[in-house]
Amino acid sequence: MSSYSTVKTLRVSANNKVTYAYRTLGTSTDLPPLVLIQHFRGNLDNWDPALIDALAQRRQVITFDNRGVAASTGRTPHTIADMATDAVEFVAALGLSRVDLLGFSIGSFVAQEIALLRPDLVNRIVLASAAPQGASGMHGWAPDVIEDVGGEVPSPEAYLRVFFTPTDAGQAAGQEVLGRVFASRIEGHDEPTTWATRLAQYDAVAHWGIPNHSLLERLRAITQPVFVANGDSDGMIQPHYSYLLAGLLPHAEIKIYPDAAHGFLFQHCHEFAADVDAFLRE
């Protein structure tokens, strides 16, 4: 099997007049394809190839740039609900009628909305570094976090501070991930995300986090099995939101990974991929 670091970027045009950039790895099986939804300001290149390669051992894995992000056309929406609608359009453009979802960070918000908008489309759901809409304390991120991830020119040092713990093990893992994510692809890079995308996505995050406890009840309508996961030291989306999610979802299981922050799924890529594979095959 080829590696995510070498697969080519493909494009598909949808009924919403958006041309989506995407990549696919693995072969079609009797299992639904696994569609990945990216983090804040992330593009196709920001997925860890080691994670994607591990996930694609048993199934087809699809990553994509949503509307207005990186190489996809259109303008980035300012709400999670619109991002979910655009993601559904992408899945439909590929001719898929049933998928598994893995949403990471802001992608986990989008995954929740997709499950509510089109429950017939979604088989199983993985929510990584996730929070429910309306939870207290999610109205924007802490000043130090947004200073690191929200600047005009993100830096490797800021990435290490937010995505990994300050321990020796955490920083060593972060250096390894930096090498895989930012240095393993030699050609065919994705377009960088723009400042307009950053502003729109942060508007969506802030709107999602306006405290409104009545919105938490919406999670009762997500009846699919859900795997909720996070690092024990995630300062961007704190792990107590994972416990809140798992308690509100009718059919959820949870795992918190040790000595890990926002990038736990890259730091523990092989363990996380094995956990996701076992969950999706249950």
Rank of each mutant, 00 (worst) to 15 (best):
F40P: 10
I62F: 12
L117M: 13
E89M: 13
P49H: 01
T73C: 02
F90K: 05
H78D: 06
A92F: 11
A54H: 12
A81Q: 10
V99Y: 13
V91K: 13
A71H: 07
N43V: 00
V110E: 00
W47H: 05
Q112C: 11
I62M: 03
Q112R: 06
P32A: 08
F90S: 06
A70I: 01
R75C: 07
I37C: 07
F104E: 07
A115T: 09
R41I: 05
S28L: 14
E113M: 01
L34M: 06
E89G: 01
V99D: 14
R41S: 13
A93D: 09
L55Y: 12
A54S: 15
N43C: 04
S72C: 05
R98D: 15
D53K: 08
G107P: 11
Q112H: 12
S108F: 08
I114V: 12
M83Q: 08
L51R: 13
G95T: 14
G74S: 01
L116T: 02
G103C: 06
N43Y: 02
L94A: 04
V99W: 11
R98H: 15
A71G: 12
L36Q: 10
V91G: 06
G103W: 04
A93H: 04
L94V: 09
R118S: 15
L117G: 08
A87N: 03
R59D: 14
V35Q: 06
L102H: 12
N43R: 10
D45C: 02
Q38F: 04
G95N: 07
I106E: 09
N66S: 15
G42R: 05
R67G: 00
Q112V: 10
V88F: 11
A93P: 08
D53A: 03
A84N: 04
L94T: 09
P33D: 09
I80L: 02
D45V: 00
L101T: 13
T63C: 15
Q60R: 15
A71P: 01
T85H: 10
P49I: 14
D82M: 03
R75E: 11
L36P: 13
R58V: 07
L101Y: 14
A111L: 12
R59H: 11
F90E: 05
L51C: 10
M83L: 02
A84K: 03
A56C: 08
L101V: 06
D30T: 15
D30W: 09
G68S: 09
L31C: 04
P77K: 00
V91T: 14
V69L: 14
I37N: 07
G95Y: 09
Q60D: 02
T79C: 00
L96F: 06
P32V: 13
A56L: 02
L117P: 07
A111K: 01
T27Y: 03
R58G: 09
S97A: 14
D100W: 08
F109R: 08
E113P: 03
R41Q: 15
M83C: 05
D65T: 01
G103K: 11
S72V: 08
G42C: 14
A50C: 10
T76M: 04
S97W: 12
A111Y: 00
R98L: 13
T79V: 00
D53W: 05
V88H: 03
W47A: 03
V35F: 02
L36N: 12
L34I: 07
V35I: 15
T73N: 05
I80Y: 00
D65C: 08
A84P: 02
D82T: 09
R118Y: 10
V110Q: 01
